[in-house]
Amino acid sequence: MRVVSTMQYRNLVENLEQQRDRNNRAQLQVSSGKRILNLKDDPLAAGEISNLEADSVQSARYLAAGDTALGKLQYTDTVFSHMLNLVTEAVTTAGATISLTNDAAYLEAQAQRVEGIRDELVSSSNSMYQGKYIFSGTATMTTPYPTAASAYQGNGNPIFIRADPETVVQTNIPGDQVFQGTDPQNVFQQLTNLAADIRAHDTNLISQDMADLQGVFDRMNGLETTIGNAVNQLDTIKARLNSAKLQNTTLQGKLGDVNLAEAITDMTLSQSALQATLQSGAKIVQLSLIDYLG
């Protein structure tokens, strides 16, 4: 083929452009740590990374919601434990009065103790987490039991959080279910009655009150178990989401992150190729018969 200088210059320039582009690309990959510098580099992977990022944010959303719910449920669990202790203490106190002789001072002291337990229980029923009542259903800004004599002020609605795409978890137990259930009176009224029965030393009624309080204990204990189950469920989901998130991140890395060893090798190779192109080009374009004449 007849080769003229314009062809050599054109080919040299195009080769140099290609080598510089390749070298520049390798440098950008190494410095950014990213394999995909433009969507056109790998549109499929870029689209997939976009989907994975969205999935990752969704996982983070569920994890964040789960963490908030976990905090509330764990706090609720603590309140339940405290309330169960209070109910147990009330039953123990009542039991101690049955076998004793009619010592008015002692009975008054025990009655006051039961009233103290009742007031503490009222306080627990008005527990707040992050400024919201935990036992008022969805009326979280309403005090469930302003006094021991008050009727329930909240509502019976549950609150759910989305723990993962398929699972919702209840994060509250409305106060009427906790403190009254299906009983004709709430636990505060029962304790008020117990205090009166202790003062009157009516052992039959005290026994009945004790049986009622045992029912309250069993109900609260059952609800605490429900809370515990929810905590366990959220822990399990959290572990699964974290694992999925890790896999997601790993996959994103595989798709989008540069293989440094490969990129550095490519950068070195492209640099060598660029140098070789420059050197050979400089030599070739110098060669002309004109240089050898005269």
Binding site: S32, K34, L37, A54, R61, A64, A65
Partner: peptide, 23 residues
């Protein structure tokens, strides 16, 4: 792939709504 954009903002909005659902 190099900087956040619509995808990030899109998921951020619904995540914010999810956080609002928690509180």
């Amino acid at each position: 792939t190099q900087h956040p954009g619509i995808q990030s903002a899109l998921t951020a909005l619904f995540s914010a709504y999810s956080s609002l659902a928690s509180q």
